[in-house]
Amino acid sequence: KYLVLALYDYQEKSPREVTMKKGDILTLLNSTNKDWWKVEVNGRQGFVPAAYVKYL
């Protein structure tokens, strides 16, 4: 498993997404889509914009 760092705040806009705050450390679950990565944060799984996170 990889960890990624939230570069920006992101507010979920659909039930498939998750909210994150700048500085959050997220567990990367799937990065096959170049635009949306599946992550786990605070016990929830969902998608965030790939451009908003970077590998640690």
Rank of each mutant, 00 (worst) to 15 (best):
K1Q: 13
K1D: 09
Y2R: 14
Y2D: 11
L3F: 15
L3E: 07
V4K: 01
V4I: 09
L5W: 07
L5C: 09
L5M: 14
L5Q: 12
A6I: 03
A6T: 04
L7P: 00
L7E: 05
L7R: 06
Y8A: 13
D9T: 05
Y10A: 01
Y10H: 05
Y10L: 01
Q11Y: 14
E12K: 14
S14E: 09
S14D: 12
P15F: 09
P15I: 09
P15Q: 10
R16T: 12
R16A: 13
R16G: 15
R16H: 15
R16M: 14
E17A: 06
E17T: 09
E17C: 07
E17H: 06
E17P: 05
T19Q: 05
T19E: 04
T19S: 15
K22W: 03
G23F: 05
G23H: 05
G23K: 02
G23M: 03
D24F: 04
I25F: 06
I25L: 09
L26I: 08
L28P: 01
L28M: 05
L29D: 01
L29F: 05
L29W: 06
L29H: 06
S31A: 14
S31I: 10
T32D: 14
T32S: 15
T32W: 11
T32E: 14
N33K: 06
N33A: 09
N33I: 06
N33G: 11
K34Q: 11
K34H: 11
K34C: 10
K34W: 07
K34G: 10
W36D: 01
W37H: 03
K38P: 01
V39T: 01
E40D: 11
V41Y: 11
V41S: 12
N42I: 04
N42G: 12
N42K: 11
N42H: 12
G43A: 06
G43N: 08
G43D: 08
R44L: 08
Q45G: 07
Q45C: 10
Q45D: 07
G46S: 02
G46D: 01
G46I: 03
F47M: 09
F47G: 01
F47E: 04
F47V: 07
V48I: 10
V48L: 03
V48D: 00
P49D: 01
P49H: 02
P49S: 02
A50W: 02
A51T: 12
A51M: 12
A51F: 09
Y52V: 06
Y52K: 07
V53M: 06
K54V: 15
K54F: 11
K54M: 15
K54G: 11
Y55I: 15
Y55T: 13
Y55E: 12
L56P: 05
